[in-house]
Amino acid sequence: MHDQWIPVDARENDLSPREQQIAERYAAGCRYQEIAADLHIAPSTVRTHLATIYRKLEVSSKIELANRLSGIAAAPRSHVDHAAIISDLALSLEEALSREKALSEVLRIIGASQGDLNLVMPAILRHALDLCDAEFGILFEYRDTKKFKASFTLGIPTAFQGWLDDSGTFSVNDETGLGRMVTQRAVINIMDVKSEALYRTDDPLRIATADLGGARSFVAIPMLAADRLVGAFTIYRQSVRPFSEDALRLAQMFAAQSVIALENARLIGNSGHPV
């Protein structure tokens, strides 16, 4: 028989109603992205609230948080503990463990997929969006001479998805994020797609990205197999929140996993087995 869940008294522990909501969801196993969607806030806001919650409740792990919410008193702490530092370090550790778990899960899916990209790519995009705090993502396959096709998407607004479907394989302007990525073979991190001069032209991709997709901050990561460009791994935020170096490193790891999946599918296809 399970113990009855006894919500912690918000007034006793000085948690606001919003902090109480976030604490309960996080302790129950929800990810930042899930909590954010449920409460209609940004994932980064969830993280900020959690740091405050950990400090207020003097906990340093999700298990301790669940115990406190169940009414179990916190263990005595040394006077040398600094609550703000401990709460941030605890969350950072949990986030690092989440990253390791996500990457391990992606590799497991790739290994078991038998080259089925429809199993692999949604999982990669889901983990990337969650850990990189982005609203939607697109995996573009590179055709040739600056031509792309949106082969896999996740979380994308319906209007933008429709535009990509109708466009099929399309050419990109040299000034677009994808065009610059092809030329430079480097990560293109755009602070605000609407602030660039390209948005004030009639470039169809930029207009569709901003107006149909609602994208503001955006990053395009080249997917390279040796020196060969095979695609672009792109993630988008619908507010002006440029991607940090940490987020870019994470996105690059997921882009690398996408290359592994694509090459694995190609090898299986060439060997005569169904992809």
Rank of each mutant, 00 (worst) to 15 (best):
I207S: 13
I207Y: 12
I207A: 14
A208M: 12
A208V: 14
A208T: 10
A208C: 13
A208D: 08
A208L: 12
T209V: 12
T209S: 07
A210G: 05
A210K: 04
A210M: 07
A210T: 04
A210D: 00
L212V: 03
L212G: 03
L212M: 14
L212N: 04
G213I: 00
G213V: 03
G213Y: 06
G213R: 02
G213T: 01
G214H: 01
G214I: 03
G214N: 07
G214A: 08
G214E: 00
G214F: 03
G214T: 02
G214P: 04
G214L: 02
A215V: 00
R216Q: 12
R216H: 11
R216F: 06
R216C: 08
R216D: 07
S217F: 02
S217G: 08
F218A: 07
F218D: 01
F218P: 00
F218C: 11
F218G: 04
F218N: 05
V219Y: 06
V219C: 15
V219F: 11
V219I: 15
A220Q: 08
A220L: 05
A220G: 13
I221L: 15
I221V: 15
I221Q: 09
I221R: 06
P222N: 08
P222L: 06
P222C: 10
M223N: 12
M223W: 12
M223C: 15
M223L: 15
M223I: 14
L224S: 14
L224A: 14
L224Y: 13
L224G: 14
L224K: 14
L224F: 15
L224M: 15
A225M: 12
A225C: 13
A226C: 07
A226D: 13
A226M: 10
A226Q: 11
A226L: 10
A226P: 00
D227L: 14
R228K: 15
R228L: 13
R228F: 12
L229E: 05
L229W: 04
L229S: 04
L229F: 07
V230K: 07
V230T: 09
V230D: 05
G231T: 07
A232N: 00
A232Q: 04
A232H: 00
A232C: 05
A232F: 03
F233Q: 03
F233A: 06
F233T: 01
T234N: 13
T234C: 14
T234F: 00
I235M: 10
Y236M: 09
Y236D: 09
Y236T: 08
Y236R: 01
R237D: 02
R237K: 11
R237W: 01
Q238C: 10
Q238G: 03
Q238D: 09
S239R: 05
S239G: 02
S239Y: 00
S239D: 01
V240R: 12
V240A: 04
V240S: 08
R241T: 07
R241F: 07
R241Y: 00
R241K: 11
P242T: 15
P242I: 13
P242R: 11
P242C: 13
F243L: 07
F243I: 08
F243M: 06
F243C: 01
F243K: 05
S244C: 12
S244A: 13
S244F: 09
S244G: 14
S244Q: 12
S244M: 09
E245K: 08
E245L: 10
E245W: 08
E245P: 05
E245Y: 10
E245M: 05
D246G: 08
D246W: 07
D246E: 10
D246F: 07
D246R: 09
A247T: 08
A247D: 13
A247N: 11
A247Q: 15
